[in-house]
Computed example of a mutant assay.
Amino acid sequence: MQTAAEKYQLNQVNTATPAELTLMLYNGAIRFIKQTKMALQENDFTKAHQSNVRVQDIISELIITLDMSNPLSENFLPLYDYLNRRLIEANIKKDVSILDEVEDFLTQFRDTWREAMALAKQAQ
């Protein structure tokens, strides 16, 4: 049985544009990085691992959804790969500073993506 919040979230995903889905992925990755850092501060290594893996899954999804016919996508592939390797390293070392680095990248990507969405909407 789904809660009202789960139904709302599922409806958001099902009705979102590809651009909005990408924004959701960035937001989700940032949220799970914050959860990972909090779990590490609480010495809850199981939860930290689970949250970190969720971020890795989101990065993998961002890689899968890249449109390689767009030259800009060719620039994002190595960046996403780098972030994924850093997440693995952070997971092994339990290193919050690495998570901070990844979070900074994702926050910049998200903010730039949000701005691009707004500009595209204005141009319509």
Rank of each mutant, 00 (worst) to 15 (best):
M68H: 10
L66Q: 14
D57T: 14
S69A: 15
H49N: 14
S69H: 12
Q41M: 12
D44T: 10
S69Y: 11
M38V: 02
D44M: 03
M38E: 13
F32C: 09
S51P: 01
A48V: 08
D44K: 13
Q56A: 06
K34M: 11
D67R: 09
R31K: 15
N52D: 04
N43I: 01
S60K: 14
H49W: 04
S69T: 15
D67G: 12
A48F: 06
S51E: 02
R31T: 15
R54Q: 12
I58T: 05
E61H: 05
E42P: 01
D44F: 14
V53C: 01
F45Q: 07
H49C: 03
L66N: 10
I33C: 07
Q35E: 10
L62R: 03
I63N: 10
I59G: 06
F32V: 02
Q35H: 03
K34G: 11
E42N: 14
T36W: 06
I64T: 12
I59K: 05
I33Y: 04
Q35R: 13
R54C: 01
L62D: 05
T36I: 00
D67I: 09
Q56E: 09
Q35L: 09
T46C: 01
F32A: 09
T36M: 03
A48G: 13
Q56G: 03
T46E: 12
M38P: 00
F45R: 00
N43H: 15
S51L: 01
E61W: 04
V53F: 03
K37S: 12
S51M: 07
R31C: 09
I63K: 15
A48M: 13
F45V: 08
L62K: 07
D57F: 04
R54P: 00
K34P: 02
